[in-house]
Design a protein around this nucleic acid. Structure first.
Length: 516
RNA sequence: GGUCCGUUCGUCUAGGGGUUAGGACAGUAGAUUUUCAUUCUACCAACAGGGGUUCGAUUCCCCUACGGACUACCA
């Protein structure tokens, strides 16, 4: 077989926000494409007009861009095989369905929904293990295999509603080699006569998918495991269409499971478990009540895209080394489809958080400052870039998300109105208050406003007061920040500035009861 | 129910016929830190069960159990 260009595709349906499992599928496609020097395509599979959700397509594009997946060809980008949206390709599919009919591999079916229901009910009643429209049951249904030729023609000419179904052989083993699972064998009796063309003239996923993958010269189909059961059907389609020699290689990814219990991670789990299942925030409407809903997104929750990517890459894949931190480029270098595991993975909130902390700490203060500045701006607080950088600098070791900066660093901008009670009751007393007053008086004379300088001054002042620094330190922190814990105290004082610190010390001494 | 897929610490996983079954997250303890956090160190903790094959199986085979996906004119 000749080496052909590697072309992979990510093909979501615009039925809502792309979920995190979809992002991982896209990521693996992307990694393989880049690793092998191939192309990454994006195709929108919107053949179900009933499930179309406005905004979903834009969301998909934005989400992929945010995580850093670059599309080489496809929706939103263009390319030589367009259009890349199936609804716009509608006229292209019918000929292939016709080709299958002519070759005797497909047929017209005129059954109504009621007739289909009746058939299934009948089979169920007869305790047929797997009720389906197949090589046996099709003999009892109204289709071009059972109806006289002239009646079929009359129905067609008369504009009767019909679908085109694949004529799946009765006894045949269908096998294909999955890149992740090895040989997968399914007997054709387990496959039903799938609808290829719907009565609205749109192809179903199965037909559109195969036709488009063929036309777009896709070399590898990497998709979720939920597609594994229909893969044999797709193999049959390639065969009957005469495309078996260029059939793409399949790789079915293990599913992402709920963190608790079991079952695949679904869109609803996010709200239930308190973590996002979507890359970006999504504003939708409740299907039943019609009310506006908001679903959390990783981006809005403060996750860095590189952390999400690193985490997702390791859910079902690993490089075989002990390295865990990988940039996108490193992932591309290290990736191989053979190392994707077969078993499903539970989503681990702790691990994503850990990756996020790691990437947060690796960022420079200048990169992080905007997060604080944005929050400050929302609270109408003015702050210089320089000061913001200093603050995130002392804070980044202690937060998990950039969104936490504001909450944690509030006291740099607002004098405390409350003081941590435990510290006050344990550490605050008359001598301490007096010592802090002395420190407040000494501060303006500090020879050097640096963490070291203020610390020395503090120690000297305490010595003069006959106190050990340790007896007063906690009180100083509470007096200045209101909190019991925080970053290095003297760094904090420097950022606050001497005038502000003296002011706050005076307020604290005046406010807090110096009992005992 | 049927078909298919899967099963190593709580979680993500490495490994592989003979290993003290390795790492990471979480958890616990200690060190550092004026505090909290960070950091560092240590500890805890797993081959689903039963049959084979074999000198030897967690690793290969079979069965069972359990989990999952699919079973639409949805993708």
């Amino acid at each position: 077989m000749t080496e052909r260009e590697v072309r992979v595709r990510f093909a979501p349906s615009p039925t809502g926000p792309l979920h995190i499992g979809g992002v991982r599928t896209a990521l693996y496609n992307y990694l393989l494409a880049r690793k092998l020097g191939g192309k990454m395509l994006l195709r929108i599979e919107d053949t179900d007009q009933n499930r179309f959700v406005p905004g979903a397509e834009e969301y998909i594009l934005e989400a992929l861009a945010w995580v850093g997946i670059v599309i080489d060809e496809g929706q939103g980008v263009g390319g030589p095989h367009g259009p890349y949206k199936q609804s716009e390709r509608k006229p292209m599919y019918k000929q292939y369905a016709d080709q299958l009919i002519e070759a005797g591999h497909a047929y017209y079916a005129f059954d109504t929904a009621e007739e289909l229901d009746a058939m299934r009910a009948r089979l169920q009643a007869a305790k047929v293990p797997n009720p389906q429209y197949n090589s046996i049951t099709r003999a009892q249904m109204r289709n071009s295999l059972t109806l006289p030729e002239d009646e079929v023609k009359a129905l067609l000419d008369g504009g009767a509603q019909y679908v085109i179904r694949l004529k799946v052989p009765r006894k045949e083993e269908v096998r294909f080699q999955d890149l992740i699972r090895g040989w997968v064998v399914v007997h054709s009796s387990a496959i039903d006569d799938k609808v290829l063309m719907k009565s609205d003239g749109m192809p179903t996923y199965h037909l559109a998918n195969i036709v488009d993958d063929h036309l777009m010269e896709i070399s590898h189909v990497i998709r979720g495991e939920e597609w594994l059961p229909s893969a044999p059907l797709h193999v049959l389609l390639y065969r009957y269409l005469g495309w078996e020699s260029t059939m793409p290689q399949f790789a079915h990814l293990p599913l992402l499971l709920k963190p608790d219990g079991t079952g695949k991670l679904s869109k609803r789990d996010g709200d239930r478990l308190g973590f996002p299942v979507f890359p970006l925030e999504w504003h939708g409407t409740d299907a039943e009540t019609g009310e506006a809903t908001v679903s959390r997104g990783y981006r809005e929750d403060g996750y860095l895209p590189e952390a999400l990517v690193n985490f997702l890459a390791f859910l079902g894949w690993n490089p075989g080394t002990q390295q865990e931190i990988f940039s996108m480029d490193e992932l591309i270098q290290a990736f191989s489809i053979e190392r994707v595991s077969k078993s499903p993975a539970k989503f681990d909130q702790n691990k994503v958080k850990w990756f996020n902390e790691h990437y947060l700490r690796a960022k420079s203060n200048a990169e992080l400052a905007p997060y604080l500045l944005t929050a400050l701006h929302e609270h109408a607080i003015v702050c210089s870039q320089e000061k913001a950088e200093q603050i995130v600098g002392v804070m980044k070791e202690r937060v998990s998300f950039p969104n936490d900066f504001w909450q944690e660093a509030k006291y740099f901008f607002q004098a405390p109105t409350e003081y941590d009670e435990t510290v006050v009751s344990k550490k605050w007393n008359a001598p301490v208050a007096a010592a802090l007053t002395a420190y407040a008086e000494a501060l303006p004379t500090a020879p050097e406003v640096s963490a070291e300088g203020l610390k020395t001054l503090f120690n000297d002042t305490m010595a003069a007061q006959g106190l050990k620094p340790g007896q007063v330190l906690q009180a100083l922190r509470v007096a200045v920040t209101g909190a019991a814990a925080g970053p290095d105290l003297f760094e904090t004082l420097v950022i606050l500035g001497v005038p502000e610190v003296t002011e706050r010390l005076r307020t604290a001494v005046a406010t807090l009861p110096a009992a005992a």
